[in-house]
Amino acid sequence: MDWTPGTRRSSAIRREQNLALIGAVVTGAVIATGLILLLFARVNPTGASRLRGVMLDLLTPVWSVVRAPFDGVGRAIDAGSDYIGAVDRAERLAAELAAARAEIQRAAADRLALAQLRRIAAVREPGRRLIVTTRIVSATAGSVARTALVGAGARNGVTTNLPVIGADGLIGRTVEAGNWSARVLLLTDPASRIPVTIVRTGQAALVVGVNGPRLELRDRVGADLPLRVGDRLLTSGDGGVFPPGLPVGTIVSAAEPAQVRPAATPVGAAYVRIEAAWLPLPEAAVAAVPESTTPVPTEALRSGARPRPVLPPAAPIR
C-alpha cells in the first residue's frame, strides 16, 4: 500500500506563523486593556492624576522656551502697531474715559447703597482671593478635549477646580495640577458646565461647551420667558467654584438651544488670573449634605464642585 507522508511545514514557516499568532494575541490584549482603561476612566474620571501632573511638568517648560522668541517677535509687532495708531487710540480712549467717568459716579453711588443694604441685612459674602497670575503656555488643539496649560502649579498654590479668569471674563477652571503647571478646562470643552445668571431676566441656567466657537445655554429656569439676542450672562456663584458676576458670554441666537458667544476667548489670552474657589466647603460639611437634596447640577457635583452651605438666618431688621 502506497503511503505518502503529509506535507510538513518548514521551521521558518512555522516560526513565522507562531510569531503572527503571538502578535495577534498581544494586539488583542492591548486593545482589551485600552477598553478596560476607558471603563476605569468612566468610573474614576480623575484617575492617574499624578501621571498627568508629571506630563504637565514635562510639557510646559519646553513650550515656555520654544515660544519665547515668537513672543518677542509678537511684542515687537505690537509695539510697532501701537506707535503707528497712537493718535487714533488716544482720541478713542479720551471719548471712552468721558463716558466711563459718568458711569463710575453712578456705580459709586450704587456701591454705597448696596453696602448699606448688605450691612442692614447682615449678608455674609466670601471675598475673592487671587492665587496667582500666570500665562497660557500650551493647548490641545488636536484633541477631543479643549484644554490649555498654564505656567503655575501646586507649588504656586494651584489645585484642581479653581476659576481661571482672563481680561474679558471667565476662561475656564483648573482640572489637573502638576508642580509647576496646571491644565485648564476651557469653556468650549463639552465637559464644561458653568452656572450663570441672565442679567436682564435674572434666570439661572447652565452654559455648556460643544467643542465649537459658540457655547450653548441649557437648563434655563423659567424657559417660557423668551431670550433676546444681546442678553448678557454672568456667573451665578452656584456650585461654589466660580465667583458671581464674572462675564461668561452674550446670547447671539435665541433659538433653543440658545447660542452664546464667549466673553473672553483664550486666543491670545497672554495672562490669566487663577483665583481661589468662591465657596469651598470643609470635607466634613460636604459629607453631611445629602447629595439628592443639593441644588447643584449633577455635572457640577461630578466635576468636584461643592454645594453652598446653609447660612445662618440673617439678623432681624431693626
Binding site: 494586539t27 485600552g34 490641545t140
Partner: peptide, 20 residues
C-alpha cells in the same frame, strides 16, 4: 492621552488598532 487630557486608553486603543 496624558498629554491631551483625554480619558486614559482612548488614543492607546485607537493607535494600537491603527498600527494593526
Amino acid at each position: 492621552d496624558l498629554a491631551f487630557a483625554q480619558p486614559l486608553g482612548l488614543d492607546g486603543t485607537l493607535f494600537a488598532l491603527a498600527a494593526a
